[in-house]
Design a protein around this nucleic acid. Structure first.
Length: 432
RNA sequence: GGAGAGGUGGGUGAGUGGCUGAAACCAGUUCCCUGCUAAGGAACCAUACGCAUUACGCGUAUCGAGGGUUCGAAUCCCUCCCUCUCCGCCA
């Protein structure tokens, strides 16, 4: 959510900045709602004040043993007037809140303007895509040669399309990747490892911005005996991790808070029918090691660079070629003001594919969830800035390793960095 | 699942219809005293919104959430959420 004060005082400027990301702010509607709100609020408050004053005098009169009846009669009409004013105001306030909650974050000035991923700006490349002297296979074909280590048919049988069963050496590799990432982030990058719920409530989803607008991207559960949507499966650990700060006032000395968690992520992928239907790239369930930072406002842009670097470190240690992309205004998520994507090289697709997305949300999420810290200088609570990034998506890392480390005979070399996690296994073989 | 208790400001915790936006204590900030890794005293110390803006200014709302009763509710009633205790069940 944007700062309502800023929204009110600089609506034109806000609209202009939102336009950069293709969002049309209905300035007139907002102005009109605000104007009505002001007069309605003043009127309501006047009535409330009068009620309070009169009620007090009734109390005094009663204590003094006077006759209250005439006073009560006077107040009768006031009551009705106040009632309808309060009701009208509350409806309007809800409308305004809904309007404000639907506005995305303002893009940072350093973010290039653009419509979609084609307008993203490549910032850097790391590593050289390997030259193959044989026909490269994609991860699906590779896995079939490895004792059917990625079993999509079983995934369909158990759950449906976009689910997978991993077995044997590939399942082991998947686990090794996650362990490796967690170890790097906790031991070298200063993140605290967290274990969090995979089912979260509505307030949490509102806090990070999934609700109310993007509920269709989520899987909602509901206890058999109850009404309503119940809890929802997390689409990313960003939701539980960031919401740890919800309704909290953190001690400034504890900042920055750096947390990491390895969790499954669940996404309905509504609206992506037909996209990436083959393989592991786009599944309803995938594992991810997430990085979240809660920082003081003046530190968030530096933190974004650092956090992105932490995710890059994983790719470098795995010796996977990648590029770093600054997302354009049109490709950024709802709550982000600046986002770097890391795209890993996939030889079978002959292209770079997203494997991490690192964003600075400024105070956008913090305001929604009232996540604050006490400023030592002013002694006042102020909104935190929140950041998150994948460090990395485990499933796509698995894909990248299978494809980049494949060998002519169909086997796959285990990356150096993962050897300590593979129990002596140095390559994945047809024995699986 | 059954029976009970409870949810108050940064923290602990008073408060069962009007003078309580909320005692007291702790923490915090400032000042006074004190010449010393101590102690004492005083003041200040929630958030949001609105009006006003030369003001130490005024008003409204907020005591888990949402409804209701009442001239008036932290205080009474209803629903929901959460916490705790005992019993049952269970990885």
């Amino acid at each position: 959510m944007l700062d309502p004060k800023y929204l009110r005082s600089d609506i034109e400027d806000t609209a202009a900045r939102l336009k950069r990301r293709g969002f049309n702010l209905d300035v007139d509607a907002f102005k009109q709602m605000e104007e009505t709100r002001k007069s309605l609020q003043v009127r309501t408050q006047e009535l409330q004040n009068e009620r309070n004053v009169r009620s007090k005098s009734i109390g005094k009169a009663k204590a003094a043993g006077e006759d209250i009846q005439p006073l009560l009669a006077e107040v009768e009409q006031l009551k009705n007037e106040l009632h309808s004013a309060e009701e009208a105001l509350s409806i309007l306030l809800k409308d305004i809140a809904a309007f404000c909650q639907g506005i995305p974050n303002l893009p940072d000035t350093s973010v290039p303007e653009g419509k979609d991923e084609n307008d993203n700006l490549e910032v850097s490349r790391w590593g050289e895509p390997r030259q193959f002297d044989f026909d490269v296979k994609d991860h699906v074909d590779i896995s079939q040669g490895l004792n059917n280590g990625l079993d999509f048919e079983s995934g369909v049988k158990l759950s449906g399309s976009r689910f997978v069963v991993m077995r044997g050496q590939i399942a082991r590799l998947n686990r090794a990747i996650a362990q490796f990432m967690l170890d790097v982030h906790t031991q070298e990058n200063g993140y605290q490892e967290m274990y969090v719920p995979y089912l979260v409530n509505e307030a949490s989803l509102f806090g990070t911005g999934q609700l109310p607008k993007f509920g269709e991207d989520l899987f909602h559960t509901k206890p058999a005996t109850e009404e309503g949507q119940g809890l929802s499966l997390i689409p990313t650990a960003e939701v539980p991790l960031t919401n740890l700060a919800r309704d909290e006032i953190l001690d400034e000395a504890t900042l920055p808070v750096k947390m990491t968690a390895y969790t499954p992520c669940f996404r309905s992928e509504a609206g992506s029918y037909g996209r990436d239907t083959r393989g592991l790239i786009r599944n309803h369930q995938f594992d991810k090691v997430e990085l979240v930072q809660l920082v003081k406002p003046d530190a968030s842009f530096d933190a974004l660079e650092a956090l992105t670097g932490h995710a890059e470190m994983i790719l470098q240690r795995l010796e996977l070629p990648y590029r770093k992309v600054l997302l354009c205004t049109g490709d950024m998520g709802f709550g982000a003001c600046k986002t770097y994507d890391l795209e890993v090289w996939l030889p079978a697709q002959d292209t770079y594919r997203e494997i991490s997305s690192c964003s600075n949300m400024l105070d956008f999420q913090a305001r929604r969830m009232q996540a604050r810290y006490r400023n030592k200088d002013t002694n006042k609570p102020e909104l935190l800035h929140t950041l998150n990034g994948s460090g990395l998506a485990v499933g796509r890392t698995l894909v990248a390793i299978l494809e980049n480390y494949q060998q002519a005979d169909g086997s796959v070399k285990v990356p150096e960095a993962l050897l300590p996690y593979m129990g002596g296994l140095t390559e994945l073989t047809p024995a699986g």
